[in-house]
């Protein structure tokens, strides 16, 4: 079904005017964007930002029991744990906990896999760095970035 020449002209004028009118109405609408560095969006509570270790409020120490479940399950090999077993004790203890944010895919499997709920996502999303090595964070040291 091909429209005739004049029909087409009619459709053309109608749709062009309609489209122009629509874009003009949107011209006067309120913009939806945020001026990012000046205005920030509210981040959802469940947002999966870079991970951090939880501190037990009673003892003031990290909850981590160095089971290395998170290291094993991490699909991107972003987590590295160094553990040590102090003499006279059978339990492993956490020595160093590294996360490479350059590898991390923020999937949340480490948080799910933790048996003692010792690791959580923060709401930090601005993790860009100029030097790649700065992306490797040591999480078990208070005072370091994102801790």
């Amino acid at each position: 079904m091909k429209a005739s020449y004049f029909e087409k002209v009619g459709i053309g004028i109608k749709t062009v005017v309609k489209g122009m009118a629509k874009s003009l109405t949107y011209f006067f609408k309120k913009p939806v964007t945020l001026q990012y560095p000046h205005v920030r969006k509210k981040i959802a509570e469940r947002y999966r930002g870079s991970i951090r270790l939880k501190i037990d409020p009673e003892t003031g120490k990290f909850k981590c029991i160095a089971c290395t479940n998170c290291e094993k399950i991490c699909p991107a090999f972003a987590i590295t744990l160094k553990t040590e077993t102090p003499e006279g004790s059978k339990k492993k203890e956490l020595k160093e906990f590294y996360v490479d944010l350059g590898r991390c895919i923020y999937c949340g499997l480490c948080v799910d896999s933790c048996p003692v709920d010792a690791i959580e996502h923060s709401n930090v999303y601005e993790v860009a760095e100029r030097i790649k090595d700065n992306l490797i964070l040591r999480l078990d040291k208070i005072g370091e970035k994102n801790v």
């Binding site: 981040i43 469940r46 947002y47 895919i105 923020y106 999937c107 499997l109 996502h121």
Partner: peptide
């Protein structure tokens, strides 16, 4: 995407 962030914690790769 905002709704996804609210529920799933991520905007695109939700898992």
């Amino acid at each position: 995407m905002d709704m996804f962030e609210e529920v799933t914690g991520q905007r695109m790769t939700n898992n």
